[in-house]
């Protein structure tokens, strides 16, 4: 295994001593097959124990280590040092307030996520003793990709709409609502529409598509939002032009 020295420029911010963030340069020896997270861990272990960031699984499922790496929202555990040249610039996720160093405040996302009712509201209640709901592989596939969201919030950091208009519900929350709306077992779409088919919901989205480009799990939130728009439009026409047709 071969090590070499990498240069990382990390955004530091400490609320107790700093009035604003500043970059700090680290030279750190790393294995060439390592990821940016490994480099941060080595910095913390051997150079600067005060550097703060979140991480856990190191396999791109826990969603903790979202950061801006050379300006792009990335999971630090899936960003390979070999893919970068020169100084690697590491910043906290864009569009979220910085708590400290690379740690952001994500309360806004957590609140919005809850607002869209991201849980199954059964179409037909049935007791557990009667066994599972039947769901064909095709019905499962219809929504499966949207279940893969790890709540890493890279899509929020990529979305310029969210950056400019913070009240926008945002890609991950709306995608999760769409996931349940598409589930053959669910009957809660009307309740969720009240949250997502609004100006703060899908209609704030102008289809930049950045959310899908940065999603580490290939969830494609942009597709979910466009589908919600189309379905909401159909709802509107049914309601206003064909009031006799039941939704």
């Amino acid at each position: 295994m071969s090590e070499r020295v990498y240069q990382l420029e990390v955004l530091r911010y400490h609320p107790e001593t700093d009035s604003e963030p500043h970059f700090q340069r680290y030279s750190v020896s790393c294995e060439e097959e390592w990821v940016v997270l490994d480099a941060l861990n080595r910095i913390k272990e051997t150079i600067d124990p005060t550097l703060s960031y979140r991480w856990s699984c190191h396999m791109a499922v826990c969603g903790s280590c979202g950061m801006m790496i050379n300006g792009e929202p990335m999971l630090a555990c899936k960003s390979f040092l070999r893919d970068y040249q020169g100084v690697i610039r590491v910043e906290p996720l864009a569009h979220f307030p910085i708590e400290r160093d690379l740690v952001t405040v994500i309360d806004d996302f957590m609140d919005k996520f809850k607002r869209v009712k991201p849980y199954l509201i059964p179409k037909h209640e049935k007791p557990v003793s009667e066994g599972e709901y039947l769901q064909s592989p095709a019905q499962l596939k219809k929504f499966k990709q949207y279940t893969m969201c790890i709540n890493c919030m890279l899509c929020y950091a990529a979305c310029p709409e969210y950056g400019l208009i913070p009240k926008f519900l945002g890609p991950a929350a709306i995608s999760m609502a769409h996931r349940y709306n598409q589930d053959s077992r669910d009957g809660g779409r009307d309740e969720r529409q009240e949250e997502i088919a609004t100006t703060e919901g899908v209609w704030e989205c102008s289809f930049v598509g950045a959310c899908s480009e940065v999603c580490p799990e290939h969830v494609d939130p942009a597709s979910a939002l466009q589908q919600v728009k189309i379905k909401s439009t159909v709802d509107w026409y049914k309601e206003h032009l064909m009031p006799w047709v039941k939704k």
């Binding site: 557990v128 599972e132 709901y133 039947l134 592989p137 279940t147």
Partner: peptide, 22 residues
Amino acid sequence: PKELTQLEHWGCPWSREANGSV
């Protein structure tokens, strides 16, 4: 089995057989 079925009722996307059972 009760717990796993309960999770199914809460929306867990278990992989399925062709006939729709888990």
